[in-house]
Amino acid sequence: MSMITIKNLSYQYPIVETDVLHDINISIEKGEFYAVIGSNGAGKTTFCNVIRGFIPHFYKGDLRGEILIEGKDIRDWELGDLSQKIGYVFQNPFTQISGVKETVFEEIAFGLENLGLEVEIIKEKVENVLKMLEIEYLQEKNPFELSGGQKQRVALASIIVMEPDILVIDEPTSQLDPQGTEEVFKIIELMKNKGKTIILVEHKMELIAEYADRIILMQDGKVVKQGLTKDILSDEDTLQYGSALPQYALFGIEMRNQNMDLGSIPLTEKQSISVVQQWMKKEGLA
């Protein structure tokens, strides 16, 4: 059974006349890393909100079709129970703090307190997460006084500590500098290696090419393409749906269009170097 099965899903926000999601069909498999890409307004965030159950539990509106989390319809899940199944981290680092805690340690513990865990166990789990994400040095700081990147990592830690099976992460790096972005991606990779299922909305194609297993490409509320990262990101056709491609792939495609066949389309820096080296050898240039 798939982790998440979505069948003929359409959704309309209240007071809006048109659907933001049209007839989506998809299944999410355990342990895979999915990147959701597409232009602004393609419905990516709405898609995440459906998976996390905020639609229809918080955002009203009209949800049609089926969405099953571990075989149970989203409408039958309690929001409270979903928090242990699906973790959710989003763009704005500033609204992702509880607003009632004085230290990062207490902030990360907040979710576990809400789940009613024993104090000793909470402390142990928080300490583990602090160590795993290498943010022990933040633990005594006031969450209000952190930088954007630090806040975002604390937000991730606060979710990870609850040990959800699925992580839905919506543009976590859009307000961060390159350093912050890299640190967030390190954490996401760590989670993937722990076997978590990851659904990530992201614009930075180079990072997606490097980390994601599969791509879900959205446009105008529809899923227009889905498949393995290497297939979708090396296909020139993807550009037609309002998405970008990694610069390395663009380079490979351009080479091919210039009749210089590299053998395959590279997606990452490492791949580019290796295919170019092979190509130069083949052409007798090196």
Partner: peptide
């Protein structure tokens, strides 16, 4: 944020 942290559990 609060819902993600199981506030209404």
């Amino acid at each position: 944020t609060l819902e993600s942290r199981a506030f209404s559990a």
